[in-house]
């Protein structure tokens, strides 16, 4: 897809590009109703989410490639995190410790065997999330469909949830934001983290930005789906391959599972 776009940009002049843009938009408008017929819910959602579904991810670390960061880039683009720039007078190095990160790549080595493992880390969407327990205002909450997220209208920026998260999944917005995306409001002084592309969920889309990007690279290391639906792809795979939760000892029953860790 990206290649095609690049070529299009190089070869076709501006006028034609405009035409293609409009044409594609129109095609989408025509195609869209047909696409929605195949998705679970007809967009956009008008009924409250319920606990009949529980969204989750399965990461097959064997397929996660060293040096690839497609999921991270896709997440940044999807949620407008790529718009973050270091504030004036701030060093890059310090900004790296302060900018928001929703998903990150981690490379591990087993101390005993030396085996290398690559995996993406993000909010693990626990069934019993410590961040929700500690939040004084109830801004950190778990949606009925299992998504753990922050209600930015209630968040006072105390950062206790960041202290309590065993996965270091949350980020505090240290600087003024600008150019936010309509679907992902975010602003200075609140805490945020991966919300399993909640806007996509509410418009009945099939998957998340990271999953799409991983598949587009041909790796298919991340599977998204409903953990409660016995026929979902994620459940089929969970039955097939051995998997575990990170920090299983805490018994948080995470919605994100890993195999090969």
């Amino acid at each position: 897809m990206t290649d095609k776009t690049d070529r299009a940009e190089n070869e076709i002049d501006a006028g034609r590009r405009d035409f293609i843009g409009v044409a594609a938009g129109m095609t989408a408008a025509v195609v869209a109703p047909g696409v929605f017929l195949h998705s679970v819910a007809a967009a956009p959602r008008s009924e409250p989410v319920n606990s009949d579904v529980r969204w989750g991810l399965l990461v097959d670390t064997a397929k996660c490639v060293d040096g690839c960061s497609a999921c991270v880039e896709a997440c940044n683009e999807e949620n407008g995190l790529n718009l973050q720039t270091p504030p004036k007078g701030e060093s890059e190095r310090k900004w790296d410790t302060q900018k928001a990160v929703w998903i990150r790549k981690v490379k591990l080595q087993d101390n005993q065997t030396g085996r290398i493992t690559n995996l993406p880390m993000m909010c693990q969407h626990c069934e019993h999330p410590p961040c929700v327990d500690v939040c004084p205002t109830g801004a950190s909450f778990k949606r009925a469909d299992g998504i753990v997220m922050v209600d930015r209208h209630l968040c006072i920026g105390c950062r206790y949830c960041m202290m309590a998260c065993p996965y270091k999944a949350r980020s505090f917005i240290h600087d003024e934001t600008s150019g936010q995306l309509t679907s992902v409001p975010r602003g200075k002084g609140c805490v945020e983290s991966c919300n399993l592309c909640v806007h996509r969920r509410d418009y009945g889309e099939e998957s998340t930005a990271c999953v799409d990007a991983c598949a587009a690279e041909g790796h298919h290391a991340i599977v998204f789906g409903d953990l409660k639906d016995p026929n979902s792809a994620i459940n089929q795979q969970l039955k097939e391959i051995p998997s575990r939760q990170i920090r299983e000892d805490l018994q948080l029953n995470t919605g994100v599972r890993y195999s090969g860790v």
Binding site: V35, S39, A43, Y203, E206
Partner: peptide, 9 residues
């Protein structure tokens, strides 16, 4: 938002 969703889909 709806159109964006449709485009992505």
């Amino acid at each position: 938002a709806e159109a964006q969703a449709a485009h992505r889909a």
